[in-house]
Design a protein around this nucleic acid. Structure first.
Length: 439
RNA sequence: GACCCGUUCGUCUAUCGGUUAGGACUCCAGAUUUUCAUUCUGGCAAGAAGGGUUCAACUCCCUUACGGGUCGCCA
């Protein structure tokens, strides 16, 4: 029996991290068992559905790399995969319930009659849970068909899981209390229940429930913030799941190889954007320089900076300095642009250093003598100048860095010298020395 | 309010009766002949509380507290 899982979003808003993680766990479970992953759109609430939301969900899933074997665009033996197009199927199943005397009319709507008994479920994450349905006031018979003839979530969700032969339902813990309802429905429908796994919810840093408006909630925001899909997937997988090892940087393939429902926690986890950035940095560091440059280029253009021929080399120089791709423009602008912006604090610091301007002058002169310019050659010259002046090379490096970049931090000095080239480097050193002398 | 689920460093987590309770993020300190960053090393920091059971409990049971979830003709 092949494993079949599904992600069944309702297109009423953008894909959020909670939904993305539910999709991820279903995808991971299917992939790790050589199963099928189905995408089903639960668009039965006409008033709240939008095309934009539906598209955002597809885009989000695609960006994350969660491809579906059956569903919109992919087709499949159980099409259509939009509930809004499955009306005839629901009518047929509803008739069965009616014939069996399990529904009754109430104010134009139809309610499903529960068996008044305790219902026990064996959840793959939560274990055995029993809900007592003998107390009717706590568990009133539920409406499954509205007075306008449309069907509610509980009914269509169960029917479709049956129709689509879903074997494992992995969903948010907010559905745990719905499960007895679904189990009763399945029994009345004469179906075989799938296995359920309720995963804990994701909370905000302050412990409140994460909703669509909270920071970091919208998956669609991640690409333009400079996150890599692999990093987001990696991070949300770590929320409520652990590999049980001390490794925590994983690719999607790594996750497929390691994922198991047994390793999923039962307690809700808080969303820590800080760690998400760190995970992103780890994934960025694993990229080849070429791949990194390709991904960083759009951000540089977006910032209005030029994209020179040697951009790949520029990107490589800042690659391990950034946590997000969006930080590349600010990290590399002094190389890409002819003009540099001086950091006031750095200038003030160097003006306080009486020897700085003089040393830079000497350096500029020495640089002019470098025939075959390169970062290494320039650094060698710097060492000579430092030795001649009786100071440590380090004392020259900071002023040089400031002269070349306008600030006190950035890529390796050798890389900067290399990328800037002899002429620009010398000009900047001269100009900066003059600026210091003026002050 | 009723009913469910949960509770290990600030955060994410390991531990599945016997450990100096481990790792990661953050933060701090050193190191890497360059401040910042990267990297490396080291450090700060935890079993909600109270009862049991047991030779032994973070691990099992109960109670309390706290957190989350659910109680729709939303999904």
């Amino acid at each position: 029996m092949t494993v079949r899982t599904r992600f069944a979003p309702s297109p009423t808003g953008y894909l959020h991290v909670g939904g993305a993680r539910t999709a991820l766990f279903n995808w991971l479970f299917a992939r790790s068992h050589g199963g099928i992953f189905v995408l089903r759109v639960e668009d039965t609430d006409e008033a709240r559905n939008t095309d934009a939301a539906r598209q955002a969900i597809f885009d989000g899933m695609q960006w994350l790399g969660l491809d579906w074997d059956e569903g919109p665009g992919a087709g499949g033996p159980h099409a259509p995969y939009f509930q809004s197009e499955r009306r005839a199927i629901y009518d047929a199943w509803f008739d069965k319930l009616q014939a069996a005397g399990r529904v009754y009319e109430d104010g134009g709507a139809w309610r499903f009659r529960f068996e008044r008994q305790p219902v026990t479920m064996r959840d793959l994450v939560c274990g055995e849970v029993t809900i007592d349905y003998r107390d009717e006031s706590n568990t009133p018979d539920m409406v499954i068909r509205r007075s306008d003839g449309s069907y509610v979530f509980h009914f269509v969700n169960v029917v479709d899981d049956l129709e689509m032969a879903i074997t494992h339902v992995i969903r948010g813990e907010d559905h745990l209390m719905n499960t007895p309802k679904h189990l009763q429905l399945i029994e009345a429908l004469g179906g075989v229940a799938p296995q359920y796994a309720h995963i804990p919810l994701i909370l905000n840093p302050d412990g409140s429930k994460m909703s669509k408006r909270d920071a970091g909630a919208a998956v669609g925001d991640y690409p333009r913030q400079g996150f890599l899909a692999a990093a987001v997937v990696n991070f949300i997988a770590l929320l409520g799941w652990s590999s049980k090892t001390e490794e925590e940087i994983f690719t999607l393939e790594d996750l497929v190889a390691r994922f198991s429902l047994e390793a999923v926690n039962r307690a809700p986890a808080r969303f820590d954007l800080e760690k998400c950035r760190w995970v992103n940095q780890q994934h960025l560091a694993k990229l080849s320089n070429a791949a990194f440059a390709t991904l960083a280029a759009p951000f540089v253009q977006e910032a209005g900076l030029p994209l020179p021929e040697n951009f790949a080399a520029v990107a490589a120089a800042v690659k391990d300095k950034v946590r997000l791709l969006s930080e590349v423009p600010a990290a590399a602008d002094f190389i890409l642009l002819d003009e540099i912006v001086l950091d006031d604090e750095v200038v003030a610091k160097l003006r306080a250093n009486a020897a700085a301007a003089g040393l830079l002058e000497k350096l500029a002169v020495a640089f002019e003598g470098v025939g075959d310019w390169s970062g290494a050659a320039a650094k060698a010259v710097l060492n000579e100048v430092a030795a001649a002046a009786g100071v440590k090379p380090g004392q020259l490096m900071f002023p040089l860095r400031a002269a070349l970049s306008g600030r006190g931090h950035g890529p390796d000095l050798g890389d900067i010298l290399d990328l800037l080239g002899g002429a620009r480097s010398i000009a900047r050193v001269r100009e900066f020395a003059a600026t210091l002398a003026q002050g």
